[in-house]
Design a protein around this nucleic acid. Structure first.
Length: 429
RNA sequence: GCGUGGAUCGCAUAGCCAGGUAGUGCGCCGGCCUUGAAAGCCGGUGUCGAACGACUCGGGGGUUCGAAUCCCUCUCCACGCGCCA
């Protein structure tokens, strides 16, 4: 959510941003109009309340003085004012909610380096890493590999849970744990603090970190308790400091979280999404940074560099993509994706997303930086980046490291986490 | 799950029983004083607002002319009991 002061003092900055995105200005004008209406209503209500407060004080004074007559006179005078205030207050609340409903739909201001483009075809390649692997045989898709090795049981998961769930079995399940542990260790060595967050959040906290539409299409709701399963540890980790001032001596706050992620994936269908590429539950190691405004762009580059070093260490071939205006979404000001090469699918596909949300999330969450206790503390900046989403990283490793017989070579850096095992063997059942 | 006690300004605390301008200490900011600092003294120190003013005592609702204070409800915390990996 953008600072309301931008709408009042510098709406031309928001308009210029909408021009880059190819969006009309209607919503901006609507916010400005609704803000004016809210402020007028609030002012009128304040006048009424001032009247009531004055009367209440007069009654108190008359009572103390023992002047029954004066007390009764003032009482009669303000008899109906309470009801009027109550109904005005309701209007004020509605006016503010109406303003913010539209304000919430307005996306973050884009960084100037974001390339222009209408959709994902406008994304530009930032850099290419590793060598495209070559095979002396026709490489299989991960779907073939998990099936022939019995590493994933989709049918029984569908029986027990539903479609897009899976049992991860044997050596592949073991490598999943190795990946998580390796990525966490990797970031801890770089000064990130390991945090295991709750995987359910309440509605208030969740509204601070995501689009309202996500409640319909992404998150699972837990009734009767009113919790939501987290779609990524970005959400509980970013909301962690909601309503607080992070002391400047702790900045930037570098966190590495690991959690299972739960996504409804409403509307997602298709052959390309078979297997474990797009599923309702997967584990993800996530980088989160809370910083001040000055440091956030350097930290965005740091997050990307961590991903590059981590994925290089896994020995995989991938591209870093600079996301364009038309593919950006609401919250990020700038975003890089890592797209790994899948030899079986013969395509680069998204495995990492690295965003600087600037003050857009922190504004809604009211996360500030500075010295606690001071007035008007600046709003923090929040950044997030995948380190590894293990289900997708497993797909990339399986397809790039596959052997002719269908087994898979374990990346060197993961072998110490698997008792020195060098190759994934198939499951007996 | 049951019971008891709590939640007040950045922190700590008073006010609640008995409704009538949210007080005090610490911290922080500014001023006086000083070569400079400390101490001391004075003022300020939540939100909206140009200002008058309004709002703010965990959240929501109610009673009342008026609620931190009374009533209802929810959340969280502490302690005890019960249950439990």
């Amino acid at each position: 959510m953008l600072d309301i002061a931008l709408f009042r003092d510098a709406p031309e900055r928001i308009r210029a941003d909408h021009d880059r995105r190819g969006l009309p200005h209607d919503a901006i004008d609507e916010v400005i109009r609704l803000d004016g209406a809210w402020r007028d209503l609030l002012k009128a209500t304040d006048v009424l309340r001032a009247e009531r407060n004055q009367a209440a004080r007069a009654i108190g004074a008359a009572k103390k003085a023992g002047d029954q007559e004066e007390m009764q006179r003032v009482l009669a005078e303000v008899a109906s004012i309470g009801e009027r205030i109550t109904s005005m207050e309701k209007e004020v609340d509605e006016a503010l909610a109406a303003r913010d409903a539209v304000r919430m739909s307005i996306p973050n201001l884009l960084h100037e380096a974001v390339p222009s483009g209408a959709d994902e075809s406008g994304n530009t390649v930032h850099s290419v890493h590793g060598e495209k692997p070559t095979f002396s045989f026709e490489p299989r898709t991960h779907n073939d590999l998990i099936e022939m090795n019995r590493w994933v049981d989709l049918e029984r998961a569908a029986k027990v849970a539903g479609s897009r769930f899976y049992y991860l079995k044997g050596d592949l399940a073991r490598m999943e744990m190795a990946l998580s542990a390796y990525a966490v260790d990797f970031l801890c060595e770089r000064g990130y603090t390991f945090v295991q967050p709750p995987v359910m959040m309440n509605r208030t906290a969740y509204e601070g970190v995501t689009d309202l539409g996500d409640f319909e299409t992404v998150m699972y709701g837990i009734e009767p308790d009113g919790y939501y399963m987290t779609a990524t540890s970005e959400h509980p980790l970013t909301a962690m400091y909601m309503g607080e001032t992070v002391p400047e001596e702790h900045l930037p706050l570098r966190l590495v979280g690991v959690s299972d992620c739960f996504r409804r994936e409403v509307g997602a269908h298709g052959q390309s999404d078979r297997g474990i590429w797009r599923v309702h539950q997967f584990r993800k190691v996530e980088q989160i940074v809370i910083s001040d405004a000055e440091g956030s762009w350097d930290l965005h580059e740091e997050l990307l560099q961590n991903c590059i070093d981590l994925w290089d260490a896994l020995g995989l071939h991938y591209e870093v993509v600079n996301i364009c205006t038309g593919d950006m979404g609401t919250v990020a000001s700038r975003k890089y994706d890592l797209e790994a090469w899948l030899p079986g699918a013969k395509a680069y596909k998204e495995v990492v997303s690295c965003s600087n949300c600037t003050d857009y999330q922190a504004n809604r969450l009211q996360i500030r930086t500075g010295v606690p206790g001071h007035a008007n503390q600046p709003i923090a900046h929040t950044l997030n980046s995948t380190a590894v989403a293990t289900s997708r990283a497993l797909v990339a490793i399986m397809e790039q490291n596959q052997l002719e017989d269908g087994r898979v070579r374990v990346p060197d850096v993961l072998q110490p986490y698997m008792g020195g095992q060098g190759v994934l063997e198939s499951c007996a059942f």
